[in-house]
């Protein structure tokens, strides 16, 4: 249960569970990064930062420092 988006390997899919810390950027929610949604790790830049995700069909990139605050549960 301590997995975060930053731990996902390329091609792995997980379900977003919750956010650590109170300061979740509203913009992230607006882009569809909400608990219950499926997230697939598409690719990462060198040093695993930033990370390129597919969240329910929305493709976005976030920094590693944000990724480690989003807890997920591996799917399947």
């Amino acid at each position: 249960m301590n997995t975060t988006i930053a731990d996902l390997k390329r091609g792995e899919t997980a379900i977003i569970k919750q956010f650590d810390g109170i300061d979740v950027p509203l913009k992230l929610l607006e882009m569809g990064c909400l608990p219950g949604n499926r997230v697939t790790m598409m690719q990462s830049a060198p040093f695993k930062d930033p990370i390129y995700l597919d969240i329910n069909g929305t493709h976005l990139a976030i920094r590693r420092e944000t990724a480690v605050t989003i807890r997920v549960e591996l799917d399947g």
Binding site: K27, T58, L60, I62, E65
Partner: peptide, 10 residues
């Protein structure tokens, strides 16, 4: 107070 979200368009 950085955060970074960017859409990757098709």
């Amino acid at each position: 107070k950085s955060f970074f979200v960017m859409e990757m368009p098709s």
